[in-house]
Write a protein that binds this DNA or RNA. Structure first.
Lengths: 123, 123
DNA sequence: TTACCTGCAAACTGTTTGCCGCTGT
DNA sequence: ACAGCGGCAAACAGTTTGCAGGTAA
């Protein structure tokens, strides 16, 4: 567990929701400019392998990261404003059971993002 | 409706599932090498504006396109093998209703991908 | 020593942009 | 003649890779 790796974990800790590798790199480099973005990318991958963090793809092209030990939850992503809202897995579980029995598909609901329009953006 | 635009629509027609802009460009360029990828990107955007096509983000960084007039359906994406399976919207509707009433969130279920492990890849 | 980092620079993928000339109305 | 579109080349964002030199067990 090197300093760099520690800093990546700390950044993820501080981030309320999911962050991007770039954002993490930006934050770390604000205080430690010698740390290279590629190190952040490599460490995210390494930490994922070790089971400390995971990633998801929300409604755009960038990879989102978060610690693996936070309470698992589903994601609602707003098309309009881009906001991300977390919902209890319970809400999604009936669907999970149905997909399992009807399609034999083991849904990973904590990594699936439901896109749509949030309450604030609705007409 | 220019030749290029027609070719983009045709390519989407032929593609069973969702394709990427790159794949469409590759196909078109096989027969019409003078057509530039940027034209494909611009036309996909234009056709989306006109309501002919839409896009989604499945479990990776690339944008997936399809015609807007195909029967709407949900998507199951396998983490392991990358396969994409379509499921009737009906299966997802109970969740849609629940998100609407509990969270005020209008889910766009035809554009949301559920990730997990498909039947074939399950242990 | 050995394996595993790291920083740096360069490559790469998917996509967007600016420019300018052509085309159809 | 005007608007819009297409080809080309260059820029771009996000990410990955190769290399050579540390660093820690």
């Amino acid at each position: 567990m090197t300093v760099q790796r520690r800093l990546v974990l700390d950044a993820l800790q501080r981030a309320r929701h999911h962050t991007t590798a770039e954002e993490i790199a930006r934050q770390i480099r604000a205080r430690h400019p010698q740390i290279d973005p590629s190190t952040v990318y490599r460490n995210l991958e390494a930490l994922e392998e070790l089971g400390y963090v995971t990633h998801t793809h929300l409604d755009d092209r960038v990879t989102r990261w978060h610690r693996a030990d936070v309470e698992r939850h589903g994601h609602l992503v707003c098309r309009r404003c881009g906001s991300e809202q977390e919902i209890p897995l319970r809400t999604l579980e009936p669907l999970g059971r149905r997909l399992r029995s009807e399609q034999g598909f083991r849904a990973d609901l904590a990594h699936s993002a439901i896109v749509g329009i949030c309450r604030e953006c609705a007409p």
